[in-house]
């Protein structure tokens, strides 16, 4: 947590040539990334899709499950679509695409978030953990093992999100009783209705002193 106060002491100056949207403004604004729509539009008008695609994308450095990726992303690409469609990490699920179900839950720098409501480009320099990144070597993560043991799933579709959320729930210190677990797992919908088994699975991991 930062203790800095506003307004900071900033000496950057500000100039802007808006011919390319944010483009010229960038250097002066200490901004880090950009995407010039006007150029894109020009490119589209000339039916030059390769050029358009080039300008629509922004470089992205991101670490996913311990692996560094240097890629490019369209600003509108969500983190969810990025991991599923670009990295083929399809364990993270799309259940509503609007932050209303929790199936897309991943950890960003250790915190659980809905990957459908954040942009990939916003994760520059961050560490993402998905369901594929939590087991170690040849052992399931204790939470995965506990879900298996307690039959904490049926169709399996919400399961990766439940597990990622469950690990965070314990790490956040919100798994001190079944009722607290229920409240702090309520962002993960399970339509098959595995809820009681999921709570049992989390209680066991919590009582086992397991940490994410």
């Amino acid at each position: 947590m930062s203790n800095q106060k506003h307004p900071e002491n900033l000496e950057q100056d500000f100039t802007c040539s808006s011919r390319r949207g944010f483009l010229k403004a960038t250097t002066a604004l200490t901004a880090i990334a950009l995407s010039p729509t006007l150029i894109t539009k020009a490119a589209i008008n000339h039916r030059d899709e390769k050029l358009a695609a080039f300008f629509e994308k922004i470089p992205l450095n991101i670490e996913v499950n311990g692996k560094s990726y240097k890629m490019e992303t369209e600003p509108r690409e969500t983190l969810l679509d990025f991991v599923r469609e670009r990295l083929q990490l399809t364990g993270t699920k799309k259940g509503c695409d609007h932050g209303q179900c929790g199936a897309c839950t991943v950890h960003v720098d250790g915190k659980r978030v809905n990957s459908c409501l954040t942009l990939a480009v916003m994760q520059e320099g961050k560490k993402i953990t998905t369901i594929e990144g939590i087991g170690s070597g040849e052992k399931l993560h204790p939470m995965q093992a506990s879900f298996l043991k307690h039959d904490g799933f049926q169709c399996g579709y919400c399961t990766p999100g439940q597990i990622m959320s469950a690990i965070a729930c314990i790490n956040e210190g919100h798994a001190n009783s079944p009722s607290e677990i229920r409240e702090f797992m309520s962002g993960n919908i399970c339509r098959c209705g595995a809820y009681p088994n999921i709570v049992d699975a989390i209680v066991e991991v919590k009582n086992g002193g397991q940490k994410g």
């Binding site: 399809t90 364990g91 998905t130 399961t159």
Partner: peptide
């Protein structure tokens, strides 16, 4: 007593029709 596809489902290895 565990599901035959349980490992796949808890590891994200289960592939649904859009995957």
């Amino acid at each position: 007593t565990d599901r035959t596809d349980g490992i796949l489902k808890v590891t994200g290895g289960a592939t649904y029709s859009a995957e």
